[in-house]
Design a protein around this nucleic acid. Structure first.
Length: 283
DNA sequence: ATCCTATCCTGTAGGC
DNA sequence: TGCCTACAGGATAGGA
């Protein structure tokens, strides 16, 4: 569910509302997420306050006082929810409950349990296996066509799957990959090595634009994603192809197609994203 | 190294 | 109403 814009939305909200708060109490559900949450995590973070909220790709990092960082990933269905007072109603699938010294609360809810939560030494964060291999974050360091073209050299993998590979670029997921390729006019099935330089230029440009616009609208709520306030993101209105199979392309009227790549849905316009439009490359 | 598949888990939507 | 299948924003291990 959450890709870069959704995680960035939550990061910004945490930076605005959670900084300086001291963790007074921690409760864990005991259920395993992507990996078991270590029993010792509670003792490791208790009493520390949140000093900074950072993000790389889809990973969120909360730096705590005393050199400990909470590293989290929302997986498919994870949510960080903040409550100034008491939560209204009963929530299920809440696996982590932080209560701050002032009584406010920060909960991690994750029905499918593909999420991740680790406490690591801040100085060793860079070496954490979850982060060490990640490609650059396209918001932190804007990427150009040259970057993409050089990383794609010789790769047979389809350009859609290339964009999803977090070790090449960090933060693009299934929704935005389809949106970026549509706006760049590139056929998602093309081998990365066969994408011409001028098409990579457009992909680079649209990556920054799409992700930026999505952040401005607090992300896309397709189903599960919610902001820190449990509200949906608004970028769904802007989607040009994702989940629009059989509907008319907003640019040319051709029916949007759904195909499966790497066991995941891809949506594209066969006309706007044809080979002719992205220019023929050598190879 | 690159690539492809299966797998982890629960909820929901749609067909019958 | 229930039952069944397919699918869902992700990442990773393991084999070719």
């Amino acid at each position: 569910m959450p890709e870069l814009p959704e995680v960035e939305t939550v990061r910004r909200m945490l930076a605005e509302h959670a900084l300086g708060r001291a963790i007074a109490e921690i409760r864990l559900s005991g259920k395993k997420l992507r990996e078991p949450i270590p029993r010792g995590l509670a003792a490791r973070v208790r009493g520390r306050s949140i000093e900074k909220a950072r993000r790389h790709g889809k990973y969120l990092m909360l730096d705590l006082s005393g050199g400990v960082t909470l590293l989290s990933h929302l997986g498919m269905s994870g949510r960080w929810l903040f409550y100034p007072g008491d939560p209204d109603g009963t929530l299920i699938h809440v696996h982590v409950k932080f209560t701050f010294a002032d009584g406010s609360k920060l909960w991690f809810q994750d029905p499918r349990r593909f999420g991740l939560l680790r406490a690591v030494d801040t100085t060793k964060l860079k070496d954490d296996p979850a982060l060490s291999l990640l490609g650059p974050d396209p918001l932190a360091s804007p990427l150009d066509g040259e970057f993409f073209a050089s990383r794609a050299k010789g790769l047979k993998v389809a350009v859609k799957n290339f964009l999803l590979d977090q070790n090449r670029v960090a933060g693009i997921g299934n929704i935005y990959a389809s949106e970026i390729l549509h706006r760049a006019g590139v056929d998602p099935r093309r081998p990365a090595r066969a994408v011409p330089k001028e098409a990579w230029d457009r992909i680079a440009k649209e990556t920054a634009l799409v992700l930026g616009e999505a952040v401005a609208r607090m992300g896309t709520t397709f189903s599960a994603y919610r902001t820190l306030w449990n509200e949906p993101g608004l970028y769904g209105d802007q989607l040009l192809v994702y989940d629009r199979a059989g509907e008319a392309c907003r640019r040319c009227g051709t029916l949007i197609r759904r195909i499966v790549q790497g066991q995941r849905s891809t949506f594209f316009c066969p006309h706007c994203q044809s080979r002719a439009r992205s220019k023929t490359a050598a190879v």
